[in-house]
Design a protein around this nucleic acid. Structure first.
Lengths: 200, 200
DNA sequence: GAAAAAAACGAACGGTCGTACTATTTTCCG
DNA sequence: CGGAAAATAGTACGACCGTTCGTTTTTTTC
């Protein structure tokens, strides 16, 4: 394990900046992330922070990427250790629900969806690509549960994926606006009903 | 029907302003609504527009109100002409789905939810109150479908309401990010499954 | 340890924002 | 029609924004 030979300092502070930026953008959204605030949070000058990214947009893209990375690490990676089939699909959903609870005060990717869903540009494209990938991940996991015979053979995995997404959105919504505990219960009941409907 | 005797001009331009503001905020969000842009859209001076509202926040509140009013007029009012029970509940859902189609490029209230869900203040409170009212409307309609015997007696109307909300959120989401037609089909299929599960 | 390279700073720019204040114009009422 | 009242315009302010640029400090390399 050679330590950090070449570009040590630059990359390190860049990571620090992104870390703080992630925290801010989780609360305020990527559009609410200003370089001035970020610089203050890191303890650097505006221009010092700015120099690490060619533009604010590049910074936002980097932060969005970090958000997706953390989400995947929290939700997908653990689920991939479960056996293919319903167990893994359930792990994905549980992880997702836990993620919503842990990030009660703002999920960066969720906010980004609303911010850029109808605002053309690189950010929009990056968000769409990310959500598309996530959706196809859950669709694939659903397909595996069909293949293993734990869901009926005539189940449409895209349809199930759509409904799971809806339940997660409602959970996210109610967690933030109303009662997190109640929302979680309702989301879990909805999932149970969904699986029951497609159980063989 | 006395015409507009007293305060005619002021109220009229105020309505015009709110109408344009609604159009802008539907695309850009309430936070993206600036008085300068609005003034230009109305053909007035910034200060002229500003004078109609004590502050930007009051303007935003007025526009949010207008958004809620239009949504109610499009979705709820027609549904109230249907007989109580499943017919009315279905009318609410259909109207809602149509609303999402018609407002593909931005629904003001939906955007407002994301913008203010974790930003304390009068806007947050107004949004929460509005969504709460809407949710209780659908819960009440569901209850009527239970009372009429069209849904099973042991159906939890709040649970059904939660799930309808989730499906609508997923429809809204997929309509904007992916394929509107496919999303509509998936949403309708989800609704059918929901009703089938609670059908007596 | 000195030279080269990278990183961070500091000040300034042009721009937009919401708002306050004062003038001017338009509308309303007797 | 004329005077009061309401509506609109005009201007200016302070604050913040992303970005640029030249300088200074820190790190890396030889």
């Amino acid at each position: 394990m050679s330590s950090q030979p070449a570009n040590s300092k630059g990359a390190a502070t860049r990571e620090l900046i992104i870390d703080r930026a992630y925290a801010i953008a989780s609360r305020e959204g990527l559009e609410g992330l200003s370089i001035g605030d970020l610089a203050q949070a890191v303890g650097m000058s505006k221009s010092g922070v700015f120099a690490h990214f060619g533009s604010r947009e590049d910074l936002q893209l980097a932060v969005l990427d970090e958000g997706g990375r953390r989400f995947g690490e929290f939700v997908l990676i653990p689920a991939l250790r479960k056996p293919r089939g319903l167990a893994r699909l359930r792990a994905i959903i549980d992880g997702w629900f836990d993620w919503v609870r842990e990030n009660q005060h703002g999920c960066l990717v969720m906010s980004a969806i609303s911010e850029y869903d109808s605002l053309p540009g690189p950010l929009h494209d990056a968000v769409v690509a990310r959500v598309q990938r996530w959706r196809s991940d859950t669709t694939r996991a659903t397909q595996m549960a069909i293949d293993s015979g734990e869901l009926r053979a005539d189940t449409d995995p895209q349809q199930v994926s759509f409904e799971i997404f809806g339940i997660a959105l409602a959970l996210h919504h109610d967690t933030r606006l109303f009662d997190p505990k109640l929302a979680r219960t309702q989301a879990e009941r909805a999932i149970e009903r969904l699986f029951a409907a497609h159980s063989p």
